[in-house]
Design a protein around this nucleic acid. Structure first.
Lengths: 148, 148
DNA sequence: AGGGTGGGTTGTGTTTTCCAACTCAGTGGC
DNA sequence: GCCACTGAGTTGGAAAACACAACCCACCCT
């Protein structure tokens, strides 16, 4: 951190401290697809095995994933999302939507079917009024709200 | 990339290639707060100056931010979100909500006031039916949809 | 006995990132 | 004129993160 830094207090930054390193969100993506085993996660993400091992440890330490033994002798584990981890799927969905729109406008690599029968097309809305929400639409308040 | 890797085709991964490096999303956060100048972004994010310079170049090259000269002699620039960049604010909002819930349950560092008068509390919904959307609720289809 | 799978760890490089210090062209004070 | 300050970077050297093949161990199958 440079000496002249005075970082904004911010939940975005704090969340990224937990899941913002390379591969972490892709691990969560794999778990959300139902892929639970080390080797499969390596194959599907492209992360190297040592880094993946360390990411899994960190995510587990922070209560985002849970390790479950499915065999003793030899010890074998599967990884699952905790409820807190599952809430991060929102983030994936919004990232996916941006990439679908801006990087694959004609053929999204994956579609999720929503319970309404349509492919999911996620929007972020205000839970109070249902209107679209966007950072910057109005002014922020609170400890981290400085605008310069 | 390990030899046995066969990474999933995925818009999440492709989006993270553009904005997933450390500091990139915090740069976008600062621009969304109306902070536009190099030194202020350094101060508010805590990124080092060289890394910030390289992130700004990359984001500009990918059409997420735009550089605008506000002084000649000496040349001085401000940074702005492009429309594509502004759409990434959704991601920030969802990350912020997760951090507010799980890391600052009692006192969120920042609140955004929505046009309805309430503080914004973002939810991700399906644009077709308005119901809550979540990855994993139903099965994926498409080129990147394998579940093992 | 030989090969394959699962879940890692180790050793050894390569690449990023960090941070202070420096630059260069103005601006404001006195 | 002289000094300090600001803005927007760039540079050099050290530290941290990352990559990748190779190894390990214990089962399982044939």
């Amino acid at each position: 951190m440079p000496k002249d830094a005075d970082p904004r207090e911010c939940s975005v930054a704090d969340t990224l401290d937990l899941v913002g390193e390379r591969w972490s969100l892709l691990v969560i993506r794999e778990l959300s697809y139902g892929v639970r085993r080390f080797d499969r996660i390596v194959r599907n993400t492209g992360a190297s095995r040592d880094i993946l091992a360390s990411r899994l440890r960190k995510l587990e330490a922070n209560g985002i994933i849970r390790r479950e033994r499915y065999s003793d002798h030899p010890a074998r584990y599967e990884y699952h999302l905790t409820p807190a981890g599952a809430e991060l799927c929102d983030v994936l969905l919004v990232l996916m939507r941006w990439g679908d729109r801006h990087l694959h406008p004609d053929d999204p690599p994956v579609r999720w079917q929503h319970s309404c029968g349509e492919p999911v097309s996620p929007v972020v809305v205000c839970r109070h009024c249902g209107g679209e929400a966007r950072v910057g639409a109005h002014s922020p308040t609170g400890r981290g709200a400085r605008t310069s």
